[in-house]
Structure formats: structure tokens, C-alpha cells
Computed example of a mutant assay.
Amino acid sequence: MTGRTHIMGGLAATTVAATLTDLDPVWLIFAGAIGGLVPDICHSGSKIGRRFPILSKLINSIFGHRTFTHSLLFLLLVRFLLSLVTNNTSFITGIMLGMASHFLLDSMTKQGIKLLYPVNITVRFPLTTRTGGAVENIVLLALTIVTLYFGKDIVMNG
């Protein structure tokens, strides 16, 4: 999936979560957008990879693409590191939800992800699509509709 779809996935996940929890919606949704991009730090052509090129190339040379940074192990590591630098539960939850949405979206592609890394098992949906194709545009539209639908409740009640 492309960066814009990952951002919208993080926004959709955290907008829904903001309506179901007492977490601060501003921090939650802001962090969700960031979390939606974080796993692609392993890809130098991604939005986040272009922002941090040296780190991106280093991670890619060690792990490759869609392995460690697309795994539950990486999710736990990021959660641990965030807990060392902040106690903002809304921010941490937003990053985690954004990353989880990224994993889910990339599982919809033919390449899939190594969710259980270092175990070499590829996780993907039975029906997959290619990155940047027509199906991704439909997914992006659906995520946008979800975000707007749940976002209106936050604006009206918040």
C-alpha cells in the first residue's frame, strides 16, 4: 500500500478508537497518522524512509523490506521504547493502532508481511491486491469514509 493509504488507515483506526475510549482524540489521531507510516522505515522510497534516509537504508540492509518492521516483535519494541520517553497513553495507543493498521493493509498485498518475524512465515489475505492499483484506491476511499463518519462524532461531541 502507498503512504497515503497508510496514513488514512492510521487516521481511520484512531478516529474509531477516539469515539470508543476516553483517550485524548487529538493525540490519538495525530499519533495514528505517524504510526501508519512507521513500519515502512525499512523502505528508502517510502514517505518515512525519505525523511530518515540513513536509518532507512541501515534497517533495510539488515532486515530487508516487510520483515522485522512489519512484525509483532517490532510493534512490541516500539511500544517499549515509547514507554521510556513518554507516559502519554493517547500518543502511545495511537502509534500502536496506526502500526497495526499498516500491518493489516500490507497483509492485503501480494507480498504480505512477516508478522511473526524472525519466523519466516508470510502473512497475507487469501485475496490480495497490488500496491497502487484500483483496489487500493477503493480501500483508500473506504478508509476516508470511515474517518469522516466517526470524525464527525468527535467534532460534534468534543
Rank of each mutant, 00 (worst) to 15 (best):
P53D: 14
L141V: 10
L141D: 03
L84W: 13
I48V: 15
T131G: 07
N87T: 14
I95S: 03
F80R: 10
L73E: 05
I121V: 13
G49N: 03
E136R: 08
Y117P: 06
T131Y: 02
M156Q: 11
G94H: 07
E136H: 08
L81V: 10
D106F: 05
L127C: 15
K47G: 07
F150Y: 13
A100P: 03
H65L: 12
Y149S: 08
F74H: 01
T67M: 08
V135H: 09
L58N: 12
K47F: 15
K47N: 14
N137Y: 11
T144P: 02
D106M: 04
L140E: 08
T129G: 10
S107L: 04
L104K: 09
A100N: 08
F74N: 01
R50F: 13
R130L: 14
A142L: 13
T147R: 00
T129Y: 15
R130E: 14
L76A: 13
A134D: 09
I92P: 06
L58H: 11
M156R: 05
I113P: 07
A100T: 11
L127R: 11
S101W: 03
F150W: 08
I121G: 06
N60F: 01
L82E: 08
G133S: 11
M96R: 01
L75I: 09
L75T: 01
S71I: 04
T86W: 10
I92Y: 07
H102D: 02
Y149G: 01
L148I: 07
G133H: 03
L75K: 01
H102Q: 04
G94R: 06
V78E: 03
K110D: 07
P126E: 11
T128V: 11
G49I: 08
S56M: 07
S71V: 08
P126I: 05
I145P: 01
S44F: 12
I48A: 04
T144H: 07
S44A: 15
F80N: 07
F74W: 05
